[in-house]
């Protein structure tokens, strides 16, 4: 058994993952502390209205895109409890997040393995926007 290859491979993978995670969390922590997401809320809401998203949907959408599906779902669950969100909005957010969530962390991990950044991001964003647009047309309120 080639035990040296095993450790070299694991360490090689490990330090790269640690480095990319550090960079990502540096960025995310900064975004969170400066409250950048909350500040952009209204403008983003205007931008995504054509997809059928209400202003309410922006917060869970951003939480999911940046931090992952569990965060996004947490924000939705919280909104449902506090103010009630209609089923269609929940579906639209879910479709978007199903296609595209945790864009920095999940994408970054594959970049460590040598994947192409363009093909990991652009097709997914197009799919997310396109499928939400279609879902909005197809499903009734």
């Amino acid at each position: 058994m080639n035990i040296k290859n095993y450790f070299v491979g694991l360490l090689n993978l490990g330090w790269k993952i640690f480095a990319i995670l550090f960079l990502i969390f540096l960025f995310l922590e900064l975004v969170q502390r400066l409250g950048l997401l909350a500040k952009g809320n209204k403008r983003i809401a205007r931008g995504v209205r054509f997809l059928g998203f209400s202003e309410q949907a922006v917060a869970p959408l951003l939480a999911g895109i940046f931090f992952g599906i569990l965060y996004g779902a947490g924000v939705i669950a919280d909104l449902i409890k506090k103010q009630g969100v209609n089923k269609k909005q929940v579906l639209l957010v879910s479709v978007f997040l199903a296609m595209c969530h945790a864009i920095f962390e999940d994408t970054g991990l594959f970049l460590v393995l040598g994947a192409n950044i363009f093909w990991l991001t652009v097709p997914r964003l197009i799919l997310a926007f396109g499928l939400v647009f279609l879902t909005n047309q197809v499903f009734a309120e």
Binding site: T107, F110, L113, G114, N116, W119, L120, R124
Partner: peptide
């Protein structure tokens, strides 16, 4: 690298 990209995109969706 291209195969890695293919698997990665399939897995990310």
């Amino acid at each position: 690298p291209w195969q890695t990209t293919t698997i990665a995109l399939m897995l990310l969706t």
